[in-house]
Design a protein around this nucleic acid. Structure first.
Length: 429
DNA sequence: TGAAATGTTGGGGCG
DNA sequence: ACGCCCCAACATTTC
């Protein structure tokens, strides 16, 4: 018997590691673990935990149709795997790679433990088309600039094609067992919430319009697939194929995702500090009252406030607006990008450490291939360009253009000058 | 996927 | 007709 451990790959079809387990010739015991160490850090109301719980339920049902059962645990992965090995004859553990620093360390420990026990540990690439050092410069160093990275990425995709791992006919290879229960959200300290999660369906006609419409938050023609990519409820290979067919611009966004994943993989220090070291000495103002206004969407800048309120209410924010609010926090308010990063990490349904970190550092100017610090968004200009009719702003800030809407918390041109002064003084060698 | 400041050009009003 | 000025429109430079 083997174990397939689901983590951020919550689907049965086109799941690389699961496929390899199912065709291995051994029966497969599928397992999911609510990692207590991660969950303990989250507030009792967390939409993403609800999402995972729902998806686990669906997978469990689907596996039960084939006579198997998904075993769902709550606790420490290492301890749970240890006790599974005690109670079952296990020959191998199958997983898909996870590139985040915490997960890498966790998986390393589990690998060491399995090695001691002489149990095979099979790990697979699944959440990206190209991982780790598959796309590197000719001298072997990682790319830190997006454009040449994407060129090589596209060439490699052309050469190698996009693999597919159809589990369909192998699903009878799950170990046949009696159904077990799933730990409830309440048992794990979470509230159940009624959330409208985006659909995991790719819409080709939407993708065809993506290039023309993606920058207009009022139209909201972005795919909202982020949460599904995050938890693997859609296959990234399926997305890439669709991008190739229907929208090169959207495909480019998927390449950015892989770019930032390999950056985090090669430079795990970016999780805590600036990619460009000189930005670590930036003299942030870090005013907690300013931060509070930004968080609540009470800055007096309608596009910023609309974005923050959309985020707080729905767990989503249109990407154009993410750039504007991130620029506003770091440049106008001079607040450390990590503060904003943490707020997004808590609120975004589609939160992905590598993308969130990479894009925040991009906005702050501290990242690899970031915009130079003197590129400062003007929230009013952005509003004119991308929400001229005020469609988006009125949706999220209904009191806009009434007396109860606050004055701008800071004068744009004053804040711009202050930003240029502080950045250039701080970055001076 | 920046915006402001500064420079250049050319049409038109006017004496 | 001519020179001068204004200024919008566009281009380039700067932060």
């Amino acid at each position: 018997m083997t174990i397939f451990w689901f983590r951020r790959d919550l689907r049965l079809n086109d799941n690389h590691g699961l496929y390899k387990a199912l065709i291995s010739g051994n029966k497969v015991l599928p397992v999911f673990i609510f990692d207590q160490e991660i969950l303990d850090l989250l507030p009792a109301q967390d939409k993403r935990v609800v999402f995972i719980h729902q998806q686990i339920f669906l997978i469990k049902q689907a596996i039960q149709k084939h006579g198997g059962d998904l075993q769902v645990f709550y606790g420490s992965p290492l301890q749970i795997i240890r006790s599974l090995l005690d109670s079952h004859e296990i020959r191998a553990l199958y997983i898909n790679h996870d590139y985040e620093p915490y997960a890498r360390e966790r998986d390393r420990q589990i690998g060491d433990f399995l090695n001691e026990k002489s149990i095979a540990f099979h790990t697979f690439k699944d959440q990206v088309l190209f991982e780790k050092s598959e796309i590197v410069k000719n001298d072997g160093n990682p790319y830190v600039v997006f454009t040449p990275y994407s060129r090589k990425w596209l060439n490699k995709m052309q050469e190698e094609g996009i693999p597919n791992f159809p589990s369909g006919v192998h699903l009878h290879n799950f170990l046949q067992v009696e159904p077990t229960a799933i730990p409830s959200l309440t048992q794990m300290g979470f509230e159940n919430m009624d959330v409208d999660f985006p659909s995991p369906h790719i819409n080709p006609s939407q993708l065809k319009q993506y290039k023309e419409t993606r920058n207009f938050p009022g139209l909201d023609n972005t795919t909202h697939l982020g949460i599904h990519l995050r938890f693997g409820t859609i296959s990234v290979r399926e997305c890439i194929s669709a991008g190739q067919k229907h929208s090169g611009v959207w495909l480019n966004e998927l390449i950015w995702r892989e770019f930032f994943m390999q950056i985090l993989c090669h430079f795990p220090r970016v999780e805590k500090s600036a990619f460009r070291a000189e930005y670590n000495r930036l003299n942030w103002r870090n005013d907690p009252n300013d931060f509070d206004k930004w968080c609540k969407g009470e800055t007096g800048f309608p596009l910023v406030d609309a974005g923050m309120r959309e985020l707080n209410e729905t767990g989503f924010m249109h990407n154009r607006v993410r750039m504007v609010v991130a620029g506003f926090l770091t440049k106008h308010l001079l607040i450390d990008w990590r503060w904003g990063e943490a707020w997004f990490a808590e609120k975004l349904l589609d939160f992905e450490l590598s993308s969130n970190n990479g894009n925040w550092q991009w906005a702050a100017g501290s990242g690899c291939d970031a915009a130079p610090y003197f590129r400062i968004f003007n929230p009013s200009e952005q509003l004119k360009k991308f929400d001229k009719a005020g469609e988006y702003v009125k949706r999220w800030v209904p009191e806009y253009e009434t007396l109860s809407y606050p004055e701008p918390m800071v004068d744009h041109s004053y804040a711009r000058q202050r930003c240029l002064k502080v950045y250039s003084a701080s970055l001076k060698p």
